[in-house]
Amino acid sequence: MNYNLITYCIYLPIIIFIMVKIGWLFYKNGEVFLLNLFQNNSELVKSINNLLLIGYYLTNIGYAIITIAYWEYVHSAIEMLNSLSYTIGKIILLLALMHYNNIFWLKHLNKSKLLNQ
């Protein structure tokens, strides 16, 4: 076991836990907006929501796994902590950015729907 392998073993559970948790929260809370957009057609909304959740998991966990391939070489415990915090922080920031983007689109779509009616 060298330091790189230990880093990966710490990194993967943390990041997968964060992503699964956040995806589940979005799944729960986004349903109301989708119901609003699709005229309360709850069966269709459920299937769209499921598909969006799976797509989110695939792309984001895929990105989290692929960062391992480009990890810098780790020599000591301090470097391990540094690189871990840097990478996890980067991914969480990206998630936040995407999240605000989503909120913006939801707002935009709801508004345009109101204007159409």
Binding site: T59, I65, T67
Partner: peptide, 15 residues
Amino acid sequence: SKKIGGFTIYLGIML
């Protein structure tokens, strides 16, 4: 990780 991660992203995009 490169192969599986890349394939997962590809699958997400296909979805």
